[in-house]
């Protein structure tokens, strides 16, 4: 089964399994390789990358929540040039497409970044992460710049709360796909320091909220693939997004707490959950159907072995 996750242009991205890890939850493709079969995933979305290096945040970066976690990393990364230098070989050997998650707040940063990324054959597409408080006008300007500047497909990850307002504008600006959505932002009190901390919220509880946004927007958006992302923790969660109209899904923090769930979801959505042994009779998979007994009688064999 192959799925086109971007608009049908000359560089459209086609994946074999409609799921991929979300940006910021899977490193740069270099982690979890000992735990899961990465080639079962549809694609890899890298951790966020900026044109210039960004330092890690200071202070509390992780606050445990009831059935979830709030994370504020500051999106530390070594900058675009060093990231490409470090991971180019790894990405070139990946059997699945690599989508680079780009964080940029100005058109100039986007121009410089996309010019550089376009030279890299190992990158199949760019996922542009938009700020949470961005206006539709600013989003359009950034997306138009990205689309015009490069050849690679531009997927745009929308903030959850503003998705209703900016989705259509971003689609009209030429985005090749929409990711709905980035993990929502929240504020929680750090039990260790007693201070309030802001960051992104990862939890199964995010899924019903984002699923509604996806469902609502699917009615309004035409001819643009949508990737559902937020709070997926089970196989059914992932299927729910596809049922709501999403072309594929991105799986986030469950990768941290139960890494093998990524592979389970990939197998499930890729139609690989049931693997029948060659020559097996159906009743070995569905006890009670009696095919084995019938076959043995036909051959004249005793079935009291």
């Amino acid at each position: 089964m192959s799925v086109e996750i971007t608009r049908n242009t000359k560089n459209a991205i086609t994946i074999q399994t409609p799921m991929m890890p979300a940006a910021g939850t899977f490193g740069f493709g270099d982690v979890y390789r000992d735990i899961i079969k990465v080639d079962l995933l549809g694609a890899i979305v890298t951790s966020p990358v900026t044109y210039e290096p960004w330092h890690p945040a200071t202070g509390t970066k992780v606050v445990p929540l009831d059935s979830g976690v709030l994370v504020h990393t500051g999106l530390p990364n070594p900058g675009l040039h060093k990231t490409l230098k470090t991971y180019r070989n790894l990405w070139s050997m990946m059997p699945i497409p690599v989508i680079l998650h780009l964080v940029a707040t100005t058109a100039e940063q986007i121009r410089k970044s996309i010019t550089r990324i376009d030279e890299e054959e190992c990158i199949a597409g760019i996922e542009l992460g938009l700020n949470d408080d961005i206006s539709a006008q600013e989003a359009v300007k950034l997306v138009e710049t990205a689309v015009k500047r490069g050849e690679k497909p531009v997927l745009v990850r929308l903030p959850m709360l503003d998705a209703y307002e900016i989705a259509e504008a971003v689609a009209d600006a030429g985005a090749d796909a929409l990711i709905i959505s980035a993990p929502p932002r929240g504020t929680a009190r750090d039990p260790k320091t007693g201070k309030l901390v802001s960051g992104r919220v990862y939890s199964p509880i995010v899924k019903p909220m984002v699923l509604r946004v996806v469902g609502q927007l699917m009615r309004r958006l035409k001819e643009i693939p949508v990737i559902g992302a937020g709070g997926i923790h089970t196989l059914q969660d992932a299927r729910d997004y596809l049922e709501a109209g999403a072309t594929a899904v991105q799986v986030d923090s469950v990768a941290w707490i139960q890494p093998d769930m990524l592979e389970k979801i990939a197998r499930d959505l890729g139609g690989k959950s049931v693997t029948k042994e060659t020559g097996a009779f159906p009743d070995e998979w569905y006890p009670g159907m009696g095919d084995t007994e019938r076959e043995k009688r036909r051959r004249g064999e005793s079935f009291k072995e």
């Binding site: 910021g24 939850t25 899977f26 490193g27 270099d30 982690v31 979890y32 735990i35 951790s47 330092h55 890690p56 970066k61 992780v62 445990p64 976690v69 994370v71 504020h72 990393t73 999106l75 530390p76 990364n77 990862y202 923090s253 990768a255 941290w256 707490i257 890494p259």
Partner: peptide
């Protein structure tokens, strides 16, 4: 520090 992933995936335990 709290380690959400323990594998180098989330980058929340990065120090300078």
């Amino acid at each position: 520090q709290l380690l959400p992933c323990g594998a180098g995936a989330c980058h929340s335990c990065m120090i300078r």
